[in-house]
Write a protein that binds this DNA or RNA. Structure first.
Lengths: 145, 145
DNA sequence: CTAGGTGCAAAAGGTTTGCGGTTAA
DNA sequence: TTAACCGCAAACCTTTTGCACCTAG
């Protein structure tokens, strides 16, 4: 059993229970999809991939599963474009480099405790998100021509 | 004439023309709404405020105007929540502190050229967005009780 | 056993598009 | 003069909700 399988197996069940959620095959399926390829899919993409292994799964269930995973701290929301939330199973501190041309997302680790400047008086920080927009090497090359 | 009025007057016309857009009363109105109160309104909120001075303006026009302003580099998109794009007329380098409880957004200046770590090979950076989530002083206080 | 989860279908936002009439340059 | 823009309404896409049935604990 490799690391990914372990993480999506019994560990998932425990994390869900701790958060007050039940373990279900659908939640495992959705989590597996996210762990299998760290490409920050949208809910729609998670739905399509999940259907391959579980043809009867519904969109409502996918949203429900994703929300449960987010609330358990196993997955985070990423807002990079207008009108499409993406999901990221990487819970390490990192930022997202997003190619505005092809939509590819690159995870880049941050130095631990990276500071983001002074904060408003009394503001209680929960987490932060850093998104860098631009062109990936491939798209930048194409554009020059 | 104060600084804000100047910025939204002849200057706006020039910036629009430079970007290949026409100056229209609707674009001025929408820009005025954003400059008047820097509270990062959604398109819907911009529409409501614009209607007070210009009752016949339509939602489609508001989106059109906002897009034109974004393309001219006068306004930027901000994605802080699921399903609601906000608009920010502050083009200085800054990050957004967002209260997950009441939705208030605080702008905080960044040190010029603040680094966000190493970047993927060949990635051509256009701009970056830093969003800090948590609770504002007021909401954090309420939650303790 | 039963609270919570699932699938379905309909509704609810938010955003975009098509079109006939209007206007900035 | 005319390409760009406006207002309106319909379409579109993502996300949420209500409900009857099912199932994990």
């Amino acid at each position: 059993m490799n690391a990914v399988e372990k993480k999506s197996g019994r560990d998932l069940s425990e994390r869900l229970n701790t958060g007050g959620f039940r373990f279900t095959p659908q939640r495992q399926q959705v989590y597996d999809v996210l762990l299998h390829r760290h490409d920050h899919p949208t809910a729609e993409e998670v739905f399509i991939r999940s259907k391959r292994a579980m043809p009867d799964i519904s969109m409502a269930t996918v949203y429900n599963c994703l929300d449960a995973l987010v609330q358990c701290g196993l997955v985070r929301l990423v807002q990079l474009e207008r009108g499409a939330t993406r999901y990221c199973p990487n819970m390490e501190e990192h930022c997202h480099y997003y190619c505005d041309a092809c939509g590819t997302v690159f995870d880049v680790a941050l130095a631990a405790g990276a500071a983001v400047g002074p904060r408003p008086r009394g503001f209680q920080v929960d987490h932060y998100e850093i998104a860098v927009h631009g062109l990936c090497a491939e798209c930048a090359g194409k554009r020059k021509k």
